[in-house]
């Protein structure tokens, strides 16, 4: 039975169900219990934004607070995953990957290839991404392109509660290392979420809106901005098709190309910075695969090539807006 659930609660439920189903699933991270060893409540926080709240009461020591040593515990999660566990490690903010990137991109990502196909590394690294929280340059980035670039990693970024639950369960069961990106501005957004356990497969984009005039390719929070833009454009008689990528590695270029073949126009939206972004990647792929279908040059709508600013006035300008997306679509429609 489905209920209306926030993305935060959907993620919590996914972890809960997987921990109940599989005793090899453990969860670790900074403050994910949030009170270990302190005089007050043991699970005071349940994650810095409360995503893992209540799980400690149910699963006890399989949830582990970690010291502020990202290299050590992300590395330990990766090591443990090669030894029979399915750890879910929370990196809190994806920005912190700078501290432990070696463990992710030189170790986890490469084991299988370097070891000739003999290693399996079923680790899931959850982290918050995205701007909008006035958290400034080191707690707000959309670093999905960095991970997507690395062979051996899978990268997931859900746009809604339903996908979040199904994709997280898939991530935990997946035998490759997965970077699971949770947009903090979406934690409160609600959709219908089935109570029972289910998976959403990787590499299958979701057509969240059908349309015949232009294809908007996006993921995460940008799906919502694209939907607003599409609503506005529908009033102008422009019908947009919105492709929510859901997973960036593997990436469903087939669905994108198919859509562009129908619409002839492409707008790639990405909250990441523009150079070597997912948007740039999609634009390049479509140009190569479906050039003859294009009626106009593909457009990219991304954050500017700057760090994320602090001042609300600037941060609101930084994040791609529905208006910018609509403008980009209009540009592809111009004769």
């Amino acid at each position: 039975m489905a209920r209306n659930l926030s993305m935060k609660d959907a993620i919590n439920e996914a972890l809960d169900q997987e921990m109940s189903r599989d005793p090899t699933v453990i969860v670790m991270g900074e403050d994910i219990v949030g009170g270990s060893g302190s005089p007050g409540e043991d699970d005071a926080w349940g994650g810095v934004l409360g995503v893992t709240k209540g799980l400690y009461a149910k699963h006890g020591d399989r949830l582990m607070d970690t010291p502020l040593s990202e290299s050590a515990y992300i590395g330990a999660a990766i090591g443990a995953s090669t030894c029979g566990l399915r750890p879910v490690a929370e990196l809190m903010f994806l920005d912190f990957m700078g501290v432990c990137f070696d463990q992710i991109f030189n170790q986890a990502a490469k084991f299988r290839y370097m070891f000739g196909g003999k290693a399996e590394t079923p680790v899931t690294i959850r982290a918050m991404v995205g701007a909008g929280f006035r958290a400034a340059a080191q707690h707000s980035q959309m670093l999905t392109p960095l991970f997507t670039h690395i062979p051996g990693l899978k990268v997931v970024c859900p746009s809604n509660a339903y996908d979040a639950k199904g994709l997280l369960i898939q991530s935990i069961r997946d035998n490759d290392p997965v970077i699971f990106c949770e947009h903090k501005a979406l934690y409160a957004s609600e959709t219908d979420v089935p109570e029972e356990s289910y998976t959403v497969p990787f590499g299958e984009a979701n057509i969240v809106r059908e349309g015949s005039d232009a294809t908007i390719v996006c993921y995460g929070l940008m799906v919502h901005r694209a939907s607003e833009a599409a609503e506005t454009l529908a009033g102008e008689g422009i019908q947009c098709e919105i492709v929510d990528l859901r997973t960036l590695s593997p990436i469903d270029t087939d669905s994108v190309v198919e859509s562009v073949e129908n619409t002839g126009r492409l707008v790639c939206v990405d909250e990441a910075n523009p150079r070597c972004s997912i948007a740039a990647d999609i634009a390049a792929t479509v140009s190569q695969e479906a050039f003859s279908s294009l009626k106009a040059a593909p457009q990219m709508v991304t954050a500017p090539h700057t760090p994320v600013p602090f001042s609300p006035a600037l941060e609101d300008l930084y994040i791609p807006s529905a208006e910018a997306i609509a403008d980009a679509v209009r540009k592809t429609m111009a004769p």
């Binding site: 590395g75 090669t82 030894c83 463990q103």
Partner: peptide, 25 residues
């Protein structure tokens, strides 16, 4: 044998993970 490693010091966290797995399992 979890691997020789081209990154110096990278093995320590990984081995801790192996120890954690042994303890958990």
């Amino acid at each position: 044998m979890m691997g020789a490693n081209g990154i110096l010091g990278a093995g320590s966290p990984l081995a801790c993970g192996a120890a954690l797995a042994a303890k958990t399992l």
